[in-house]
């Protein structure tokens, strides 16, 4: 609703597919409105680039309402940008001032190889999930939904953890590039529910082992992950994952 647009200077990481590294390229976008989303501002840039015959900046995005977990970039040094509890697509340009210079980098971690420009490969998360992020049961064998009473407190705790969208910002923000928050959210969710009980020990050991195999770093309890998490997943889940892990290890 602002009448006058802002001018925003961007330093965007450009990296060709298959290249070992890339570099920052400077761009300027004019007539940026406060109510535009950050990605809409990049859309405008891309329109201009295509009109000039240049290749558009590639960035992953899909739902543009903060739930699919597809988008993600580091804006001026912070994963998902300066507004807490938001994904990149939820950032509005009202967070910035006329004349600002913003740096835009991909999520960086060895297990998240850069594919092109700001697009990274997060398939490591899928492989971790495949090691135990499920309840082993086939369609058809479920008892009535009310067969297991689950206290509201436990259901709420499970939901807090289950809210994870798998965007990878926790890894991107972690000084050690650890995936502890992501992995713990799934382990923690299932540990609050009776359905997850039979596979508890096995699940935590297997998912942690896969997380390590993928080459993620170890968690040093800095808590940067929680600060950038769009769904505000608490690091209490990391503590819970460790408890589950120790229990699993001791039971063999």
């Amino acid at each position: 609703m602002s009448d006058k647009g802002m001018t925003i200077h961007l330093k965007i990481w450009r990296q060709a597919r298959g290249a070992a590294s890339g570099k920052f390229v400077d761009y300027t976008v004019k007539n940026v409105l406060a109510e535009m989303s950050f990605l809409e501002m990049l859309d405008i840039l891309n329109e201009e680039l295509v009109q000039k015959g240049e290749e558009a900046v590639e960035f992953d995005n899909d739902c543009r309402e903060g739930i699919c977990g597809t988008c993600g970039m580091v804006i001026s040094g912070v994963a998902h940008g300066p507004y807490a509890a938001s994904t990149t697509c939820e950032i509005r340009m009202r967070q910035f001032k006329d004349g600002d210079t913003l740096t835009v980098e991909p999520f960086r971690a060895k297990p998240f190889p850069i594919i092109k420009d700001l697009v990274v490969d997060r398939s490591a998360f899928d492989r971790i999930q495949q090691e135990g992020g499920f309840v082993t049961m086939n369609v058809g064998s479920a008892p009535d939904g009310n067969a297991f009473p689950i206290s509201k407190e436990h259901a709420d705790k499970a939901m807090d953890a289950a809210a994870c969208i798998g965007c990878g910002a926790c890894v991107a923000a972690c000084p050690n590039a650890s995936a502890a928050l992501f992995v713990s959210a799934k382990i923690s969710q299932l540990s609050w529910l009776p359905q997850g009980e039979p596979e508890r020990g096995r699940r935590s050991l297997a998912m942690v082992a896969q997380m390590d195999d993928e080459g993620f770093g170890d968690c040093s309890n800095h808590g940067e992950c929680e600060a950038v998490c769009p769904k505000e997943i608490s690091i209490e889940n990391i503590a819970r994952m460790r408890r589950e892990f120790v229990k699993g290890a001791l039971k063999g």
Partner: peptide, 22 residues
């Protein structure tokens, strides 16, 4: 009905009442 049963059994954290029912 089977969808709800199936989803609950898979660990979908549906909202619950204090008594533990859906």
């Amino acid at each position: 009905m089977g969808i709800i049963d199936q989803s609950v059994a898979m660990g979908v954290p549906f909202a619950r009442e204090y008594g533990g029912t859906l």
